[in-house]
Amino acid sequence: MLLNQFLILGAFLFAVGVYGVLARRNGVMVLMSIELMLNAVNINLVVFGVQHGVVSGQVFALFVIAVAAAEVGVGLAIVLLLYRNRTSIDVEDFDLMRG
């Protein structure tokens, strides 16, 4: 197997995740797309771990999974709070920072 098979798959998933974050209007969908990006990173970590014969890659992938879990928890709480306060989770609606 080529190293690049996995790396390019990761790059593709990352780009798809970026598209999701930038284009989707639903707050929950944005969070899901972020998960996609995090998973793309995980592929790279595991593949390079295998390539270099070290276990650190897997360990860091584990940490990423743990951090992603924390991120989803807090992110969904924020989305919930937004929904409660604004009765909408459409990110287009939130432009309080408009100059």
Partner: peptide
């Protein structure tokens, strides 16, 4: 995202070419 994917894939192919997985 296409731009991002393009530059990433290009540099991956450029750098790793046909390296085989150990």
């Amino acid at each position: 995202s296409v731009l991002l994917a393009g530059v990433t894939v290009y540099s991956l192919i450029d750098h790793f070419g046909s390296d085989r997985l150990a």
